[in-house]
Design a protein around this nucleic acid. Structure first.
Lengths: 253, 253
DNA sequence: AAGTGGTCTAGACCACAGC
DNA sequence: CTGTGGTCTAGACCACTTG
């Protein structure tokens, strides 16, 4: 039997990342992601995993310890290891999911697509996305409604090299943000928040007065050091706030 | 000689947190915090630390691995372990340090303290901080200037139970934010960002027009499940933006 | 008493840098 | 070649929770 490969009693993770503790971590992570194990469920004890995979306890321990540090499981000495409650996705990333956000408040969500097309990149867009001016770039515009009240105007550009099918979508069942989240794994995010007064067109789209402020969220996401999308989200300030709450990095020391 | 205590060749950390790997971690962390070791310096190898403290390599390895995960040191297999460059403190926390922010842009920073006093908590303040209405709470107001232009009006309330000396400070050498950061270790942070139009008083303090929007950052911090401070920071939108860029949580998997 | 996780040891093999 | 970190093992002791 080969070393460095979980293969004993049960299924083994596809495309093993070589490190044993990683394979154990992925094994458990997959069980949780696939909902086979849900919040509160008991995870096999270290001893059980040792027996199941035929590896040492230190190795199992590292896998479980890292999952606990990530908040994926909760460990209680003397009791056991349990699947953690889903985390509220902290750090403004929640905003990526305005649809979920609205639905979780128990409100009706609707999205109106204004346009989806391929256009040549303006100098501003090219510079922000690391493209050449005039290069083809996907452009989408839509309005998000909460109980039929406009709460966000989304003006988005997408790198066609990273998401080639973006411009062919109708976005009838899925928002542009949700499509991208599914199609391209995000590795890095930048957020810039501004307050502005809307121009005439923006005010009309958001059914707001021109004298009232807009909260503008500018976001870029990267995968493999390449900008996948840049998007400006305009919110009538009277109807929207951005929030986040999270533990501080070095808190546990 | 007792177990569970580094005591061999060299000084031992004060108030040992019992776990050996923690003591090693703190030992190295302190060297870096105290600037005894600076960015780029070589950290003793695992073998050297094993010899120095008379403990096993797995224990040293865990200490160094966790420091590397935190970004405190950088490890290169086959080469060694080195003190990492200082991190840009991501995730909007940078805003805690508007003074550093301004100085790092090479601009002149100045802070004008308007008031520091003990006042009875209003219902709004009491509710946000988990106090009783009328209970004493510290209140400070100040304006932050960048090159003598007002960029932030800071309106802050502080729980006197968590930072009893706050109201006695003059804040001549240190901003209220810097004092609190030093006096009370923060464990959790909440941010809410809004856009508003300023009232007459705010507009006058920030030397801005009443028709121009304000970007308002509301922040609360917790230590031991207790609110330490709540603060509203008002920025003239034309002179300030909030930004953050950071890697996404599950990216490394 | 039995089971759990938290920690620690004293070895080991490996891939990789640099000389 | 030696030294480095990355990983893994097969034990161990402990404090804790639960029946």
């Amino acid at each position: 039997m080969s070393k460095n490969h979980i293969a004993s009693g049960h299924r083994l993770p596809k495309s093993a990342p070589s490190a044993l503790y990683q394979q154990v971590r992925n094994y458990i992570d997959d069980k949780i992601t696939s909902k086979e194990w849900v919040a509160g469920d008991r995870v096999p004890s270290e001893h059980e995993l040792v027996a199941q995979f035929g590896i040492s306890r230190m190795t199992v321990n590292r896998a479980l310890r890292e999952l606990a540090e990530e908040g994926r499981v909760v460990r209680v000495a003397g009791v056991g290891t349990f699947v953690a409650e889903e985390r509220p996705q902290s750090t403004l990333l929640q905003i990526a999911n305005i649809a979920e956000d609205i639905r979780q408040r128990g409100h009706r969500y609707r999205c109106k697509i204004l346009s989806v097309e391929l256009v040549p990149a303006t100098p501003e867009v090219a510079s922000a996305m690391g493209l050449h001016t005039g290069q083809q770039v996907a452009h989408s515009r839509c309005i998000h409604f909460e109980n039929d009240v406009a709460v966000q105007f989304e003006d988005r550009f997408v790198n066609p090299r990273m998401a080639p099918d973006f411009a062919r979508q109708t976005f009838a069942a899925e928002t542009p943000a949700a499509y991208l989240l599914r199609a391209v794994p995000v590795q890095e995010i930048e957020h810039v928040v501004e307050a502005t007064l809307p121009n005439k067109r923006q005010a009309a789209l958001l059914q707001m007065e021109e004298t009232q402020p807009c909260l503008v969220l500018f976001r870029r996401t990267w995968t493999d050091q390449t900008v996948v999308t840049m998007v400006r989200c305009y919110h009538p300030a009277s109807r929207y706030r951005l929030g986040s709450r999270f533990p501080v990095n070095g808190a546990g020391r």
